[in-house]
Computed example of a mutant assay.
Amino acid sequence: METSPDAPKPTAKDIAAKFRDEINSGKREPGARLPAARHLAKELGVQLMTVQNAYGHLRDEGLVLSQQGRGTFVRNPSAPLGTEPGSSPAFTALAQELNTIHGALQLLGERLDRLERIVGGETPPAR
């Protein structure tokens, strides 16, 4: 990203896109720390809120985790969403909801198996 005084200032979407590309290309590996928001805002000549919004977009996409007082880190994609400290609250809620749905589907599958065994064991009525 250009940081010359004449260059247009990047938006939160621009900043998020830059880091998204770096994460997806493997340039930033899981566990890598993103620059401190204050430092990056000063370097890019943007408001702190702009960088925080960019990091928020990445967090909501499940690409990074933010840990109070430690920073923002690239998330390990092999870990289930919503299970790591610093996960997006939306992903945490979604993970809990999916676990509930998965459990209900498993119970329904077991009931269906029992019903199929019962029905499969019956002989059709004689005509």
Rank of each mutant, 00 (worst) to 15 (best):
N76C: 05
A90H: 07
V74G: 05
E84C: 13
T50D: 03
L81I: 06
P77G: 06
Q68M: 11
L81N: 00
V74M: 07
A79H: 12
S87V: 04
D60K: 15
G56D: 13
A79E: 14
Y55N: 02
Y55P: 02
E61A: 11
R59F: 10
M49Q: 14
M49W: 12
E61Q: 14
S88A: 09
G82Q: 07
L81A: 09
H57Y: 15
A79T: 14
A79R: 12
A90N: 13
E84P: 03
A79Y: 12
L58D: 03
A90I: 12
A79M: 15
P89I: 04
G82R: 05
E61P: 00
D60C: 10
N53I: 04
A79N: 10
N53R: 13
F73E: 00
E84T: 13
G69P: 10
Y55G: 01
P77K: 10
T83Q: 12
S78E: 12
E84R: 12
T72S: 11
F91I: 11
V46D: 01
Q67Y: 01
Q52H: 13
R75G: 01
P85N: 14
D60I: 07
G69R: 09
V64I: 14
Q68D: 11
S78G: 02
S88R: 00
P89D: 11
T50F: 01
F91Q: 11
F73L: 03
Q52V: 11
D60F: 08
V74Q: 07
T50V: 10
F73R: 04
Q52G: 06
G62Y: 06
G69A: 08
G86S: 08
P77E: 08
V51Y: 00
F73M: 03
G62M: 00
N53A: 11
L65T: 01
G86E: 02
E84K: 05
H57F: 15
N76E: 04
P85R: 13
F91P: 00
P80G: 08
P89E: 15
R75P: 09
S66Y: 08
S87P: 09
L81K: 05
Q67T: 08
G82V: 06
V46K: 02
Q67A: 01
M49D: 12
L65G: 06
L81S: 10
M49S: 14
R70H: 08
D60T: 07
N76T: 02
R59N: 14
R75S: 06
Y55M: 11
A54K: 00
Y55T: 01
L65K: 01
Q67D: 07
A54Q: 06
R70I: 01
M49T: 14
S66V: 08
F91W: 15
S66Q: 10
T50W: 00
